[in-house]
Amino acid sequence: MSPSDFARVFKETLGQTPMQYVLAYRIEQAAQMMRDKHLHLGEITLACGFADQAHFSRSFKQVTGQTPRRFRAA
C-alpha cells in the first residue's frame, strides 16, 4: 500500500488524517499530564514530543479551543 493510499483509507476510516490523529493523541496525553500540578509545562511539552512550548501552546489551543494555562486553571 502506498503512503497516499494509506492516508486516504485512514481518513475514510477514522475521519481524520494520520497527522491529525497523532496530534490529537499527543494533546490528550498532555491534558492528562497537566492534571498533575507538579509538572511544569516545559516538561509536558518535551514529554509529548513538541519542539518548544510555543508550538505546544498553539497546537493545544487549536485542538481544545483553550490555552494550556486556561485548561490547567479550570
Rank of each mutant, 00 (worst) to 15 (best):
L14K: 08
L46Q: 03
Q29K: 04
L23A: 00
P18L: 05
K61M: 04
M19Q: 15
Q32Y: 08
C48G: 12
R35G: 15
Q29C: 05
S2T: 12
D5E: 05
T64S: 08
A24S: 05
F71N: 06
S57C: 09
L23V: 05
R70N: 07
A7S: 12
Q32L: 14
Q32A: 12
L14T: 10
G49A: 12
R8K: 13
H38Y: 08
Q32D: 15
A7Y: 05
A73M: 08
A24D: 04
R26W: 00
F50S: 09
A54D: 12
L39Q: 05
A47W: 01
F6Y: 04
A47Q: 10
D36A: 08
G65F: 10
F10R: 01
A73S: 12
A54M: 10
D52M: 07
A73R: 11
S57R: 12
H55Q: 13
A54H: 13
G15C: 09
C48A: 13
H38F: 09
V22Y: 10
F60E: 04
A31W: 03
Q53G: 13
L23E: 04
I27N: 01
F60Q: 03
T64M: 11
K61F: 02
A73V: 07
S57T: 14
A54L: 10
A74R: 15
A31M: 14
M1D: 02
A7W: 02
P68G: 04
M33V: 03
H40R: 07
H55S: 11
F50Y: 11
Q53F: 07
F6M: 00
K37H: 06
F50Q: 07
R35H: 15
Q66I: 11
R72P: 09
A7M: 06
L39R: 04
V22F: 10
R72V: 11
E12M: 13
T45Y: 03
F60L: 04
L46V: 06
S57K: 10
T17C: 05
A73I: 07
K61A: 05
I27K: 00
P68W: 02
H38E: 14
E28K: 00
L39H: 01
S57L: 06
L39E: 03
Q66V: 14
L23D: 00
M33Q: 07
G15D: 07
Q53M: 11
L41G: 04
L41C: 03
A30C: 04
R35K: 15
I27W: 00
T17H: 06
A31R: 08
M34H: 12
I27D: 01
P18N: 06
H38T: 15
C48N: 14
R69G: 03
R8A: 11
I44H: 03
C48W: 06
T64V: 13
G42H: 06
K11S: 11
R69M: 05
M1Q: 01
H55F: 03
E12H: 09
G49W: 07
Q29V: 07
S57Q: 10
Q32F: 06
R58S: 01
G65T: 15
G15V: 08
P3V: 03
Q29Y: 00
F71R: 07
A47S: 11
E43Q: 08
T45D: 08
H40C: 05
